[in-house]
Amino acid sequence: MSGSTCTGQPVSWLALERHVLGELDADRAGAVQAHLDACAACRAALGVIESDRDRALPPLPDLALAAAARRRRSRRAVAAGAVAALAAAAALLLVWRDRAAPDARLVGSKGGDEVVIGLVRERGGDVALDPAGFRPGDRFKVLVTCARAGAATVEVSVRQAGSVDHPLAPVTIRCGNRVPVPGAFRLTGDQPASICASLGGASACRAVVPE
């Protein structure tokens, strides 16, 4: 980090970003430009923005995909409420199945506090929400939905080919809907994998299969 001396009150980074985007009104834009003409330190800051402008962002998930995912979760919740006893039995069965061969959907949850896991997969700049499949090298982020009050520690594990990895350090989050767990990891290999998030005594897993 280099130190630079501004000739007066520096033009904030926010104002510089707006200047570059052409969002400042004429008076403010004129004042900013006049300052930049006289101030090497602020020109250097502007240079940081301009030199970074061509760096691509990974695309966002499609809104329609996200809405479909929300609808799926909503339907799941309604169904779970209507057939609670059956769902509990099914969950047990799915947990058992997960040990043998991971399924492509949500495969299990346990514990007093419900936890739901979501996945974001990035592949060559394409982002998919809650994917069922993976190719070696795909990058994954984990989203956790939980209702616990206050902070909670999440541990992420990946079960694949009989072994269990913990690709992310345990991290404390505040519960909410689809809270991103900091960090990301890549899946490799050609065996189905089960990605799990554990939070206190509760956990949830989602299975992905090789494509």
Partner: peptide, 14 residues
């Protein structure tokens, strides 16, 4: 990750 997480969250929340 922070920026992606923020916007994914915004999209998810509609």
């Amino acid at each position: 990750d922070v920026v992606q997480g923020l916007f994914v969250d915004l999209v998810e929340r509609g």
